[in-house]
Amino acid sequence: MALLEVKNITLRFGGLTAVNNLSFDIEEGSIRSLIGPNGAGKTSVFNCLTGFYKPTQGEILLEGQSIMNKKPHKITAMSMARTFQNLRLFKNLPVLENVMSGMHCRSNAGFLGAVLRTPKQRQEEKRIREVAEECLDFVGILHHKDRIAKNLPYGDQRKVEWARALATQPKLLLLDEPAAGLNYDEKEKLIQLIKRIRDERKITVFLIEHDMGLVMKISEKIFVLDYGQKIAEGTATEVQNNPRVIEAYLGKEEDEELE
């Protein structure tokens, strides 16, 4: 049984079909990528998986359990975390508190715990802090923990997002264009980080990416999406040589003179 099974999902917005009869599996412990031209529906797929959009048809199973009609916070609690394409940090809060948000679904102190500061609550607070610091250390920005998130350079803000997603202690991590806006150096480090996430933390990674170099280097298997449909699936070289993929990205031969 695969960790994530997507069966024939279709997402329609009125007359527009954003995702059309899409199926794929993600095996535990793998690194998978979803690529496709702009507007192919990649982020819509992510939003379906994480519960922000409700697919019109189909079925999505996480560890054999259906996550259709579940709210995003429930899905996160079921061990699937995500990052956003455009940074969605809690900009005005310190970095550490940003990351601590991920532990919310792994802790349960309520009103009484907060007011009475029970030993159990204090222990939980300590654990939340420790996990958050460990996640910051893992992505390499623990030294920034007390700074306000919006004052960090862009590359480090991305790292805060990854740390925050890791703090939810996921089994499957969805990264929406993690390399967008990063320089060459930062991209190389990102490749190492994604491998470490899989190897050291045993987290399955599924990413959307535009940077072909990066995708080809890390993913064992790639899905290609165009107009909401899966047009190819396979290893990096297989996908690169697939005529339908080339057509989706570059257009057909006879169109070339138009450019």
């Binding site: 996160t76 969605r88 809690f90 900009k91 005005n92 948000s101 991920g102 919310h104 679904c105 792994r106």
Partner: peptide, 16 residues
């Protein structure tokens, strides 16, 4: 605070 800052991100982080 998280909700006040960004409702969607808070929801994605597992906050009901």
């Amino acid at each position: 605070q998280y909700i006040r800052e960004d409702e969607d991100a808070a929801e994605a982080m597992g906050i009901n």
